[in-house]
Nucleic acid binder design. Sequence first.
DNA 1: TTGTACGCGTTATCAG
DNA 2: CTGATAACGCGTACAA
Lengths: 345, 345
Amino acid sequence: MSDALPREEPTSAGIKDVAALAGVSIATVSNALNHRERVAAPTLDRIDRAIGMLGYIPNGAARSLAAGRTRSFGLILSDLGNSLFVDIARGAERAADERGLSVVLANSDGKLEREDRYVELFAETRVRGVLLTLNDASHFRAIVGRHAHGQPLVMLNFHDDSGRYCTASIDNEAGGHLATTHLLETGRRRIVFVGGPDTLQPVADRRRGFRRALASAGLDPIDEIAPTWVNRADGWQVGRRLAERVQRGEIDGVVAASDLLAAGIVQAMSEFGAISVPDSVGVIGYDNNQAAWDAPIPISTISQPGDELGFIGAQLLIDEVDEPDHEHRAIRLAPELIVRRSTER
Amino acid sequence: MSDALPREEPTSAGIKDVAALAGVSIATVSNALNHRERVAAPTLDRIDRAIGMLGYIPNGAARSLAAGRTRSFGLILSDLGNSLFVDIARGAERAADERGLSVVLANSDGKLEREDRYVELFAETRVRGVLLTLNDASHFRAIVGRHAHGQPLVMLNFHDDSGRYCTASIDNEAGGHLATTHLLETGRRRIVFVGGPDTLQPVADRRRGFRRALASAGLDPIDEIAPTWVNRADGWQVGRRLAERVQRGEIDGVVAASDLLAAGIVQAMSEFGAISVPDSVGVIGYDNNQAAWDAPIPISTISQPGDELGFIGAQLLIDEVDEPDHEHRAIRLAPELIVRRSTER
DNA sequence: TTGTACGCGTTATCAG
DNA sequence: CTGATAACGCGTACAA
């Protein structure tokens, strides 16, 4: 009775089961899987049928162990709630699709501990490489310190031209300049910059662009304000303080480091000072968030080509993997001005 | 000179290199890695040092091949742009963290082809199991048909109580009922439902809840409108047509299947009919999108506990993996009413 | 075109 | 506590 009883085998079938059922050797099954052209049609047919019967699923672990590589790469996102990162994911997937690769995602929430953890997880997984979105220079340093070279790694949304890594980012300095110039061109002269902690590279860069634009117009920046963070509530608080100064005629333009910040500012302006935007003060945000165009007063903003960023980043990564004599590059993409009501004249 | 020349070895070091450098056997290194208590302190020390020197990274493929299992599971999201799914991811990660597991994400964009592809990719990767967000019954059938049981799979945001799979969803029927009842309680009597294609299970369920609420109030539903989809532009088009009927007094309440839909409707109302929301017509949305509270007229809505959904889904999955005599369960979470300006009375 | 045999890097078992 | 060795499931020369 020992053998007669066909013991239930819930464990998924392996390649040898398929080979047995199809009446061929495992090598042939493997070929059928990876090099269909090397196998005769009828044989192929029997094998396919066997695979179907058994519900056979190749073991990726064994496969990549033997092959020495995976067919996917990792993408670590800073903030799933921010459409920029969603766009990046889309772009990266598009680039991957073109090569028949897959993208697996992970969410770091901008926390170093999680960035670290997923870089390592992906390294162990032996993905082809990993794309890491970053916005804090200190995180960059920490990760670079720990990172064992060998695993291709490209940084996204972060700029570093030391040549140690490929880097693709959107030129935030140019964006800040663009926003400020726009305000200047619409006649504003007393402009203030509002933006979160400068440890965030994008914020610091935007601020720098702001200063440069003012300087080349021969103007001095009004004291720049650094809220604790860049979301709507922060903007609202800042806006409250700003309102008085607008009424006193001390300020006629605001460059905010994010759309949510800008939205909060605009809201506070009308709530606390009955100040007209854009008549009394022009406000421009950053990011082209949905919140910006949905606002009661649609907010002018700087749009970032996230999709392209993801696409290019993936290409850099793929190049690094494929090309033996790959040289690290630091690519910068140009942001774009979008004019809406909040800065009209 | 052959050995004297320390040839550059860009290929990452393996466990045996570590063993050699530390002067122990690979078995001991393995123990040091996975069962630290089994190894003497000084030995441990030498090994750790060797690992550091070599920049050794365990090969996950070999590891899971030998161990037979991974320490992560997969989560396939329908729409990264929708905050509900982002919340789901957060909740799932929270549950995973509690067990020291990791979550890898994938984006299906709601496309069957991609849902399929990632279910398979994760299956090959031999993750512990996969969480799949779904909203189309036809996709469910297709995937169930292809899915080789053995890989634990739980459906999220989709309800099926046939007992073949674990399922966790938010009760959309109750949500539709909740929204409609709220409108009734604020005195509206001529209410219309606006919602996308009924192939989307959530939409169909919300519509059903709407009907039930009207029925128990002894009212007939006004002809329900099915826009082609559920975003803002669709709402705007529908709103345009609706405006006339509101002016003629035929309609005094709108239950929309999504906040974006509702936002579009409200916008069209004021643009084309100078109709006052909420005075002439009450409008309620669904999802508690940021767009809803950011709108010029903040929109009442139904909030969904996405975080909890992800958390519970992950728990179901983990239970399915760990418990031998696991029984599939279909869990429904309750949505919540959020009252804002658009339905005030 | 097909089969044999070995290796991929780890884990687990079982002696020492 | 440590070391040898057999799996793990598959890819791929190489030979037939």
